[in-house]
Amino acid sequence: MTAKTILSRPVYGTLSPQPGRNHLFVADAEGAAAILDMAKATPEGFFADAHIMFVPDDTGTNYVEAVKSLQPARFYQGPTIAAALPRLRQTLATAHMGLRIYLAGSEGLIGQAMQAAMEAGFDPSSIQTEHRGSLARRVQCVHCKGITENVTTQPVTCSHCGLLLLVRDHYSRRLAAFQGVCINAEDPTESPQAEEIFR
């Protein structure tokens, strides 16, 4: 579980079935286990109106069959989050009110899928989320604006401009990213050792 730090840091819950006409699930890796856990408590026929989009990544391939066996109306398996996003956007663009959204897995997956939902007019407060698996962060460099994916260390070198960044807990839903700020701006000779802490 992620420790609660500051108020802009997202707080994730546990997926639970919501009243609605259609249900859209987006998950990566261990996020599939959150769907399977929720499925134990869903009413009969719940998944008959469901669309599940799953990116197994390295650690989720053995969930694929179990997720398929929920017999959702539609099932999609994608190679990466980036590859799944256009499909997600198109699904949302043609959806109607009554659709409920459930996001499970890494913070990067939850953040990027939520970003797409917000762009489609969905308020984040009405989206179910559950964090499972990696704590790796997406980090926006406040200086060059580039986003570095899968950050596990503190500090981290910006993959775009090369500045050494302190990864803050301050989080932007709009960018689906944590904030990275130059750690040695006041004294460029300081070079703290990177430690792996977002695992």
Binding site: S8, K145, R168, H170
Partner: peptide, 21 residues
């Protein structure tokens, strides 16, 4: 940073302020 904080609510954009919360 406006670019980072745009879209946040009152509590979120003040999140980094110590003590006051």
């Amino acid at each position: 940073s406006l670019d980072f904080d745009i879209g946040m609510n009152f509590f979120e954009w003040h999140a980094p302020v110590p003590l006051a919360h």
